[in-house]
Measured scan of single mutants.
Amino acid sequence: MSGNGNAAATAEENSPKMRVIRVGTRKSQLARIQTDSVVATLKASYPGLQFEIIAMSTTGDKILDTALSKIGEKSLFTKELEHALEKNEVDLVVHSLKDLPTVLPPGFTIGAICKRENPHDAVVFHPKFVGKTLETLPEKSVVGTSSLRRAAQLQRKFPHLEFRSIRGNLNTRLRKLDEQQEFSAIILATAGLQRMGWHNRVGQILHPEECMYAVGQGALGVEVRAKDQDILDLVGVLHDPETLLRCIAERAFLRHLEGGCSVPVAVHTAMKDGQLYLTGGVWSLDGSDSIQETMQATIHVPAQHEDGPEDDPQLVGITARNIPRGPQLAAQNLGISLANLLLSKGAKNILDVARQLNDAH
């Protein structure tokens, strides 16, 4: 009898209710805020589980004197976190989706994509230029951005401005803007500013005609071990179906173009009346040469937790077992079709030249 009692006690200790789920994140304040929001949602869904947040620095956090596009290494903000995932030191990792490459290392998958916040870019102005827009900034004003995508589009749109690289986390960039006289304004992701509670610093939100956004911008991705079915089931509740389908289309477009950090590629997606609209573009580094096109596809946005595919093969690095396969494939095909259209119009040449120029500098 006593033996059975011990077995029952052991089973209770090993039951999922007692389990601590370890969540990996970057150390920056924004990353911690984003991770806290994901953990809060998981806690609400699984009140019996405990969650421990483990923060670590990544290569991208450490190399702050070089433009991201020049470092010449993929997975700048993800490699150390993936290493911890691989060694079973954490069970899942919360990322900004735009930091996750469209091809993940073997053994990993994006197990959830959370509801997207505003994906557009924002302009934050130096205190002396508050009330201005990019259009009304004085001639030769210097605007800071760490992104080739932003610089290429904005140089084309605002030729009277000069664009220079600015690195560091959000706090560091804002301090550089406010305390030094080098920059009249800087460009940042609206979602990051909003998550930090800095709505009052948003001086201008850039519309798609001015600057399309990065693939996955404004959404959070939760990376897990691809074979860890328990954790895949656990994080599945975080999937937002519309965000998922938009981001599958965007990531398929980028992957098929073979774009990345070192080339200016941008997108804009919208879901309306059962249609998914995808606009994508590529630019030369100075913005003088560009190709942009829009395509659409009829896609039914499923309700969360309709029964999805059981075999769960990944699409552009994403596993969404609780979302039907048909809409996911339709979104992926839309991204591939748009990429093929741009490639047929000469996108590869623009991107190759951009890559060579970026590598040469």
Rank of each mutant, 00 (worst) to 15 (best):
S37C: 11
T279N: 13
R116N: 04
S141Q: 11
H256I: 04
P106Y: 06
S45V: 09
N340S: 09
I205N: 10
R225F: 05
L329E: 01
H305M: 07
L188M: 08
G218W: 04
I231R: 04
S337R: 13
N322V: 11
C114Y: 06
K128Y: 09
G131I: 05
P119V: 10
P324H: 14
R149I: 04
G281N: 01
G192M: 05
S141V: 09
V130A: 11
A330R: 15
L104V: 09
N322I: 08
S165P: 14
L76Q: 10
L64A: 15
Y46C: 09
A330S: 08
H199W: 10
R116D: 04
G197Y: 07
K79D: 10
F158Q: 09
D91L: 03
E310W: 03
L85Y: 01
V237L: 13
L137D: 03
G335C: 07
V103C: 15
K345D: 05
I336M: 05
C114R: 09
D311M: 14
G260S: 01
P105N: 06
F125W: 12
I110W: 01
R22F: 10
H120N: 12
L68W: 07
S96A: 12
R325Q: 14
T172W: 04
R251D: 01
L177G: 01
S28G: 11
A249V: 07
L104N: 03
S147C: 05
E250K: 03
I53W: 05
V267R: 01
Q275L: 01
G317L: 03
H120V: 09
R116L: 04
L76S: 11
I166F: 13
E82I: 01
N349Q: 14
T25E: 09
Q296R: 13
K98M: 01
F108R: 14
F129T: 10
V93P: 03
L177M: 12
R321L: 11
K43R: 10
R321N: 06
G259L: 12
A55M: 07
A320V: 10
F108D: 01
D289S: 10
H305I: 14
L49M: 11
D311Q: 11
T243M: 01
E223V: 05
H160D: 12
R225Y: 09
E117P: 01
K176V: 11
L232R: 04
V103T: 15
I248L: 11
P309I: 06
L64K: 13
F108T: 14
L76W: 10
D311Y: 07
L49H: 10
I350L: 04
V267W: 01
V39Y: 10
S337K: 05
K115A: 07
P327N: 01
E306L: 14
S28E: 01
L137M: 11
A31G: 08
V237Y: 04
T190D: 09
L244V: 09
G335M: 04
F125P: 12
I186A: 11
G107L: 09
S262R: 15
D36S: 12
K74H: 10
D36R: 07
Y213H: 14
I231F: 01
L174A: 06
A360W: 01
D286T: 08
K62G: 15
K157Q: 12
L76T: 10
E80W: 07
D99N: 04
S184R: 13
R32F: 07
L154Y: 06
K176N: 08
E73Y: 10
D61L: 11
Q217F: 01
D359N: 09
G216K: 01
G72W: 06
T78S: 08
L161E: 01
P313G: 10
S290H: 01
N169K: 11
V265S: 01
V94H: 06
Q204N: 01
E250F: 01
L68A: 11
L351M: 14
L148F: 14
K27S: 12
G48H: 04
G308L: 11
G216C: 14
S28H: 01
T25C: 06
D359A: 15
L254W: 15
F253P: 04
I71V: 11
V123H: 03
P159F: 08
I110Y: 04
V130Y: 14
V265H: 01
T35N: 04
L357K: 10
G274Y: 01
P208I: 13
R149P: 01
A55S: 12
L244H: 03
V267E: 05
W198M: 15
V124L: 09
S337E: 05
I350P: 01
V235D: 01
R116P: 04
L49P: 11
N169P: 01
A40F: 07
R355G: 15
C261N: 01
N349S: 07
G107S: 10
C247A: 15
N333K: 14
I63E: 01
G280C: 01
P119M: 01
E52F: 11
I323L: 14
H160Q: 13
R173C: 01
R173T: 01
R167C: 04
D352R: 10
K62I: 15
L278F: 09
D36M: 14
I54Q: 03
H207K: 13
K132T: 10
F108G: 07
K27P: 11
A330C: 15
Q204E: 09
Q296W: 07
E82H: 03
A252T: 14
E135L: 12
K176P: 01
L315N: 04
G203L: 01
R321Q: 06
S290M: 15
E89T: 10
D312Y: 12
T243S: 11
Q275K: 12
K43S: 10
C211L: 10
I291H: 10
A55F: 15
P106Q: 11
Q229P: 07
R22G: 08
F77D: 03
L220Y: 09
R149F: 07
K98D: 01
C211A: 11
A270F: 14
A320G: 14
A303W: 01
K27F: 12
L97P: 01
R26N: 01
C261E: 01
T66I: 14
G280E: 01
A31T: 01
S262M: 01
F51V: 14
R149S: 01
W283E: 01
I33G: 07
G308D: 13
L170I: 10
I291V: 07
P241K: 01
G259N: 01
R116I: 01
A219P: 01
S69N: 12
A84R: 06
H256Y: 05
H120F: 15
I110D: 04
V222Q: 01
A112S: 09
F253Q: 01
I231M: 13
Q304R: 13
K27M: 11
G221K: 01
D91N: 12
E86A: 11
T25V: 06
D286A: 05
R22C: 12
V124A: 12
V90F: 05
Q180R: 13
E89L: 10
V39S: 08
R26V: 01
L343C: 06
H268M: 15
D36G: 13
E162F: 14
E179V: 13
A303Y: 06
W198F: 11
R201E: 01
L76D: 12
L244M: 09
V222F: 01
R225Q: 01
P159G: 09
R26A: 04
L42D: 01
L177H: 01
Q50P: 15
V316D: 10
L161Q: 12
D61N: 01
G287T: 01
A151I: 05
R251N: 05
V265A: 15
T66H: 08
V103M: 11
D312T: 01
I54R: 09
T58A: 09
M196S: 05
L238V: 07
V94M: 01
S69K: 14
Q204P: 08
E210W: 15
T66N: 10
N118K: 08
L30F: 01
K157F: 10
T145S: 11
H256K: 06
R150G: 04
V222K: 01
I299C: 15
D352T: 07
P119G: 05
I350F: 14
G60Y: 01
E139W: 15
V267G: 06
A185G: 15
D233T: 08
E179G: 08
L42N: 01
L100K: 01
V142L: 10
I205F: 01
L315V: 03
G317E: 01
R175Q: 13
M271A: 03
L220I: 01
T319P: 05
R195N: 01
T243Y: 01
V301T: 01
T172F: 09
H83K: 12
W198Y: 11
A270D: 12
F158R: 09
E182K: 07
P106S: 13
T133H: 07
T109F: 04
A320M: 05
N349K: 13
P105S: 09
M212G: 14
T58W: 01
F51D: 07
